[in-house]
Write a protein that binds this DNA or RNA. Structure first.
Length: 692
DNA sequence: GTAGGGTTAG
């Protein structure tokens, strides 16, 4: 505990603490201070002062880290001239706020006896920037009792505090006050009003303010764009963009950032629109790159995201913590381990850690690349962990089938004081199900209520999977019947899977009927469905399912596998012949299939029909993407190197058998991550135990 | 001596 950080301190204690901090600081011989002191020597002689006002100002304007700041503060505090310089007080407050210490800024603020409006503005901003919205508004409220009037700097800031805390009613009062003093004509204040109304969901009001403004600039329009985007109205937001372009106002990085909240699951047209906006930007700031990357990441375009990130580096733009936290999930998605590692090194080199979001993203990236040790190392190094960190690590163990580790970590999380939330329970339940930990799974499901977490459909689906996997098909069905919410296709799908494995036709038919009703064209279970109906002799249903497959099943996402070779991602589609090495790959595959047959491999003619996910029907006869990727990897890596493949769908039965045999024939570890879990093939065996 | 819009994870 540093005495300088405590708010109510008496001067004597403070000076003592200052002396201590100073000596400690000087003994560690930090360079900035040494430089600072040597530069200051002549001035010391002149003014009997450690530091000149100008020099302190300069340092403070650069927002020093908290340690330097406290030392500087101490020096200013004990200096008879500097300590009563109001401008240094302002800068100190600002710098503390930037370090996330508005409380210390408040301490300085309270010491000032004769506060003018600037002090209030800086104090309000300090709170606001640290999300202490209530405190910001409380300071605003005290202004009048000090005889100080809010000005054009105050209002934008308090308006932002209103929208941050959803205090629309305070915002309305402030709007009234603004109009009263005529500041609604001010550009900054007007923009603040548009933004406040927009964020509070009052789009009509926002538009009214915008239309009534005497002067508008690009920020005014961006505030309006943000209003629509924050309320999920992407089309409305784009319309405002077009309107502003019509007025010859060019969208800027702020426009892109404003659009961002609405771009998850954007249509491909809208992604293209964002891209063209990005390309047309006069100045591509770091934020605009970050937003464009995030657009790709949030719209399942990880390859584009990674390419853009690499291009950004090439153009000499230095990625920051935001860029990295955004791009890492994409690296994980396509198992771009080498790129991910390089980014990790870069983050360390740039001293971007500790940073909670970035470190969480690192864990996730390593986990998705199947590098549990690396994920764990990052996790262990973290100074602060939140529930996301724990959850990422738990699911990392879960998807590799290490259920016991996941369970142990969950307990550790409980002990650490992090409160598990809904997603944390999903991760531990799914870990139990992948690891076959029946009793533990039941325990955690019951535990949810003790944490006030209401089971959602994902939790139910995990439980059905867990019970079904353990062979308790009847109990799983019973469990579904007792569900408090309507089961969806994932739940019925899990049951159907269990029925297949444990040959339970009666319940299988029930599950199939439900799946059929729940839009079979979406579920991807239609093949299982048709097989089950066929076995039961329900030919009419078979015909219906087939016709649905024929009419709609064709335009689903094609199966794609990725393999990273020397920092480049090679992508294979089912039946792909576009790869430069295509000919060689197919030849080698033929050789392998020959050897596999010697080991008893029989290619199932309708093997593709066993796809649990929606593999394109047109590709059914073609070679699946994971086989191509595996063979490519075999051809291009040295023997002994593990092969890591990522697939965007679940692996099919035929490819699963093939991968097992190839791992034996070629004496290679093959690690395939599908949408469900990791399959670790070694010496003819898979870590999933052939049930997935 | 102080400004407005907007971007990061399970």
């Amino acid at each position: 505990m540093n005495a300088l950080g405590v708010s109510h301190i008496n001067p004597q204690q403070f000076v003592k603490a200052v002396a201590k901090a100073l000596s400690r600081y000087i003994s560690t011989a930090k360079q900035p201070l040494n430089v600072l002191l040597s530069v200051q020597k002549p001035q010391i002689a002149l003014r009997k002062s450690f530091l000149s006002q100008v020099f302190c100002s300069e340092i403070l304007d650069q927002y020093p880290d908290i340690k330097t700041l406290k030392v500087l503060h101490a020096k200013i505090f004990i200096d008879q001239y500097l300590c009563c310089d109001p401008s240094l007080g302002i800068k100190l407050m600002r710098a503390y706020a930037a370090c996330g210490e508005p409380g210390i800024a408040r301490h300085i603020f309270d010491e000032i006896t004769d506060k003018n409006v600037v002090f209030f503005n800086v104090m309000i901003r300090s709170y606001m920037n640290n999300r202490f919205y209530r405190d910001a508004l409380l300071v605003y409220k005290t202004m009048s009792s000090h005889g100080v009037d809010a000005d054009n700097y105050t209002y934008p800031c308090v308006l932002k505090a209103c929208s941050g805390s959803d205090y629309l009613w305070v915002g309305l009062q402030i709007h009234g006050a603004v109009v009263k003093v005529g500041l609604d004509l001010n550009l900054f204040v007007g923009n603040g009003l548009v933004s406040m109304y927009g964020k509070c969901g009052q789009l009509v009001e926002a538009r009214g303010v915008l239309d009534g403004m005497a002067v508008r600039d690009v920020v005014s329009w961006n505030s309006m764009v943000a209003g629509y985007a924050q309320n999920g109205r992407f089309d409305g937001a784009l319309e405002v963009c077009r309107e502003m372009e019509g007025l010859n106002l060019k969208p800027d990085a702020g426009t892109m950032a404003s659009l961002f909240p609405a771009v998850s699951n954007a249509s491909s047209d809208n992604v293209l629109y964002m891209k063209s906006m990005f390309m047309k930007l006069a100045k591509r700031s770091l934020v605009s790159w970050n937003v464009m990357i995030a657009v790709y990441v949030n719209n399942s375009m990880p390859t584009e995201a990674v390419d853009l990130y690499l291009q950004m580096e090439k153009e000499g733009i230095e990625p920051d913590a935001v860029s990295i936290s955004s791009i890492l999930p994409a690296c994980g998605d396509i198992s771009a381990l080498l790129i991910g590692r390089k980014i990790h090194e870069y983050a360390d080199k740039k001293k971007l850690r500790p940073n909670l979001l970035l470190e969480n993203a690192l864990i996730d990236m390593y986990a998705k690349c199947g590098c549990l040790e690396d994920a764990r190392e990052v996790f262990d190094q973290m100074r602060i962990r939140d529930v996301v960190s724990w959850t990422s690590m738990i699911s990392a163990y879960g998807i590799t089938g290490q259920g016991h580790e996941a369970v142990a970590l969950f307990s550790a999380m409980q002990r650490s004081g992090s409160k598990p939330d809904s997603i944390a329970f999903v991760s531990v339940l799914s870990a139990c199900s992948h690891g076959g930990l029946l009793d533990e799974g039941r325990y955690f499901f019951d535990l949810m209520s003790k944490y006030g977490v209401a089971p959602r459909i994902e939790h139910f689906a995990c439980m059905v999977d867990l019970l079904g996997r353990a062979g308790l098909v009847d109990e799983a069905y019973h469990f579904i019947k007792q569900m408090t919410i309507e089961p969806n296709e994932r739940v019925w799908g899990a049951l159907l899977g269990a029925c297949q494995v444990y040959s339970n036709r009666n319940i299988g038919l029930i599950a199939a009927d439900h799946l059929f009703q729940l839009a079979p064209e979406q579920s991807g279970y239609y093949v299982l469905l048709s097989n089950i109906y066929a076995k039961a002799g329900r030919w009419r249903d078979v015909a219906t399912v087939r016709s649905i497959m024929k009419s709609r099943g064709l335009k689903k996402a094609p199966g794609v596998s990725n393999f990273e070779l020397q920092g480049h991602i090679h992508t294979f589609l089912a039946g792909d012949q576009s790869h430069p090495q295509s000919k060689k790959i197919y030849q080698e595959l033929d050789v392998l299939v020959g050897k596999m047959k010697e080991l008893g491999y029989v290619p199932e003619t309708d093997s593709a029909l066993h796809d649990v996910e929606e593999e394109d029907k047109e590709y059914h006869l073609a070679v699946h993407s994971e086989k191509l990727a595996i063979v490519f990897a075999l051809l291009n890596t040295e023997s002994g190197t593990p092969i890591r493949i990522t697939k965007n769908l679940r692996i099919c039965r035929d490819c699963h058998i093939a991968a097992k045999l190839i791992s034996k024939i070629a004496v290679r570890e093959i690690i395939v991550r599908d949408t469900h879990r990791f399959h670790h093939f070694q010496d003819g065996v898979c870590s999933c135990g052939d049930y997935w």
